[in-house]
Design a protein around this nucleic acid. Sequence first.
RNA 1: GGAGGGAUGCCCGAGUGGCUAAAGGGGACGGGCUGUAAACCCGUUGGCGUUUGCCUACGUUGGUUCGAAUCCAACUCCCUCCA
Length: 418
Amino acid sequence: MSNLKSDFLRILSERGFINDCTDKEGLDEKAATGTIAAYIGFDCTAPSLHVGSLLPIMMLRWLQKSGHKPIVLMGGGTTRVGDPSGKDESRQLLSDEQIAANMAGIKRVFSSYLTFGDGPSDAIMVNNADWLDGLKYIEFLRDYGRHFSVNRMLSFESVEQRLKRQQHLSFLEFNYMILQAYDFLELSRRHDCVLQMGGSDQWGNIVSGVELGRRIDDAHLFGLTSPLLTTASGAKMGKTAGGAVWLNEEKLPAYDFWQYWRNTHDADVGRFLRLFTELPMDEIARLEALEGQELNEAKKILANEVTAMCRGRAAAEAAAATAQKTFEQGQLGEGLPTVEIAANTIREDGLGIVDALVAAGLCASKGEARRLIRGGGARLDDEKIADENMRLQEDLFTAGPVKLSAGKKRHVRLILKD
RNA sequence: GGAGGGAUGCCCGAGUGGCUAAAGGGGACGGGCUGUAAACCCGUUGGCGUUUGCCUACGUUGGUUCGAAUCCAACUCCCUCCA
């Protein structure tokens, strides 16, 4: 395993980034003797990437750190088609305006992880709409389509899944892998890119590109995939009570982002430290060896490191401080999500506690708020709320913000606003 | 184009005229135990109002009926086989 010569592959390997590689020795040789360019594609299906994309982003970061050139491919063109990999059903088609807006949001996050510029190992960002949008159908089919075997395509996991489960797969989506393969070819021609990386669900698409390069340009391209990340409990990474764990601040406050990592399962701590932080391996070994309650320290470090990289050191420290106040001292941390209550809604005869829970975003509906109270999960300044008809009065706020909680982990600061 | 099968709540899936806001499971959320873990146990899981109430919901639109997720018709989409 560790007879790897290149820094790049050795780091990825020892940190657990590698699931599969089309030609590990060949790639190692190439990375050890020169500078290589590698790319990962990101489709613009949402206004922000979420933690699921953090793994590929970290791969690009290590690539750059070991002296190579990362290429971030924005899927402005492929998003118009829709990748069927790993999806049960066809995604709704996104409008071009949505795609453009999503791309703008996604682009922002990369500057936290990569250095962009014109130097040999500076990262660049390209958009596959640049070459996909202008393709001519018949020409494309004749030049490239003939290199694809439908028999083969049908056997790829992404396609086979759909067929086996009797789920609709449109011809549009069926073409996705061809376009992704073509992307690789274009990038190898334009930027001398020799490696495509991605999640293991991308294996089929990546291999298609490697083959296309060999058939048409006689190029020796490489593919490398990372393991599909699931948590120890088997769930796909990146979901939390509030929804997806977004990388962009405007989609998820730093405090919540930090909390996500703080709540990592015991069994995942070591793996996540290796994948999502840049702590030295021996330090990680020490941290993951901690047992019982002490392992919580490792989780805090994990949260701090990941948050610092994504949101900045200051944001990470603020989140850590808020968490400490809230959980370890039982106080009201300043960094908790803050919700303003308009003073005039409360002045007359107070604000119903049920409405307050909904307004605070802790419950999706009044019924849910009532159930929460009945189940004993709602608390006001750490006092269990027993009466679902209770009303918050104005004088409650004279001493300052009030803490409203749903369960042990979700807290909101309520403040009165004129 | 022909023949047959199917569409149920976040997901899977039962239900073939009233007892159905709809079994069961998963997930999620809450409580207990803990370490802001895991496992386990318990509870909750359409909306609004709350003492029995109203509204929305079983692909879509109509119809039969006192009454439909359940029967009928048309339509949409998916699947299988045939051409």
